[in-house]
Simulated assay, not measured.
Amino acid sequence: MNQEVMIPSARVLLLPGWQNSDVLHWQSQWEALYGYERLQQHDWQRPLRGDWSARLQETVVDSVQPVVLVAHSLGCVLTAWWAAHSPLARTRVLGALLVAPADTEAEPVAAQLPGWQPVAQARLPFPSIVVASQDDPYCRWDRSQHFAQAWGAELVDLGPAGHINTASGLGRWDAGHALLRRLIKE
C-alpha cells in the first residue's frame, strides 16, 4: 500500500455501479493500491435502489471517520439519491468524486434498471466533481452537464473516454486519483 498518496483523514468508500467493477477497473486498482474500501452490495446483478441506499446509510452510520465517496456509473446515481434523503450527507461526507454517471432515465438503461428513476436532482451538500466522457454510451454529454449543474459539482470533461471503465484503457487512472486528492484538499 502506498501510504503517501492515501487520504488519511477520511474513510474512502468506492461505490461501483451495476455489476460491480472488475479487477482491471480503476476502482479495483485504487482499492489494491491505496487500501480504499469497496462498498459491497447484496446483489450486483439486480440492484434495488432502496437496498443499495440502505447499505450506504449503514456504512456511513458505522464509520468512525468522515467519508469520501468515489462513485462510478450507477454509484453516482446512488450517491445523489442517498444524499437527497439522508441527513448524514451533510455531516459525515467530506466530498464525492462522481465518475461517468449513468442516466437511468434514458433508454436502454431505464429498462435494464427499473426503480432507479428519477435521478435525484438536488444540490449535493458536500463538494463534488463529476468526471464525464463525450461518448459515454450510458449518458449523453448534455445529461452529464445537467447532472453536474444540478448537483452543484465541478464538471471535468475527459473527452472521448467511453464509460470511463476498464474498456476505456485508463489503467490505475492516476489523473483521476489526482482529482480525488484535490477535492479533499479543498
Rank of each mutant, 00 (worst) to 15 (best):
M1D: 04
N2W: 00
E4A: 11
V5A: 04
P8I: 05
S9C: 04
S9G: 12
L15A: 10
P16M: 04
G17K: 07
W18C: 05
N20Q: 14
L24H: 12
W26L: 11
S28G: 13
L33I: 03
Y34I: 08
Y34E: 08
E37V: 12
R38Y: 00
W44T: 08
Q45H: 12
Q45C: 06
R46D: 13
P47F: 02
G50D: 13
W52F: 06
R55N: 04
R55Q: 15
R55M: 11
Q57W: 08
V61I: 13
Q65A: 14
V68G: 07
L69A: 03
L74H: 03
C76P: 05
V77M: 01
L78P: 04
T79L: 03
A80L: 02
A80K: 03
A83P: 03
A83W: 00
S86C: 12
L88E: 06
R90F: 03
A96F: 02
A96T: 04
D103L: 08
E107V: 11
E107N: 03
P108K: 11
P108N: 06
Q112L: 15
G115C: 05
G115P: 05
G115Y: 01
V119T: 11
A120Y: 02
Q121C: 07
A122M: 01
R123Y: 00
P127N: 03
I129R: 07
V131A: 05
S133A: 10
Q134N: 01
D136I: 05
D136C: 04
Y138L: 10
C139L: 03
D142E: 15
D142G: 01
R143P: 06
A148R: 05
Q149E: 14
A150C: 15
W151N: 04
A153S: 15
L155H: 09
V156T: 07
D157T: 07
G159D: 08
G162A: 09
H163V: 07
I164F: 01
I164K: 03
N165A: 12
T166Y: 00
A167D: 15
A167E: 15
S168I: 09
L170G: 09
R172P: 07
D174S: 13
G176Y: 06
A178F: 00
A178D: 13
A178T: 13
R181A: 12
L183Y: 07
I184N: 08
E186Y: 00
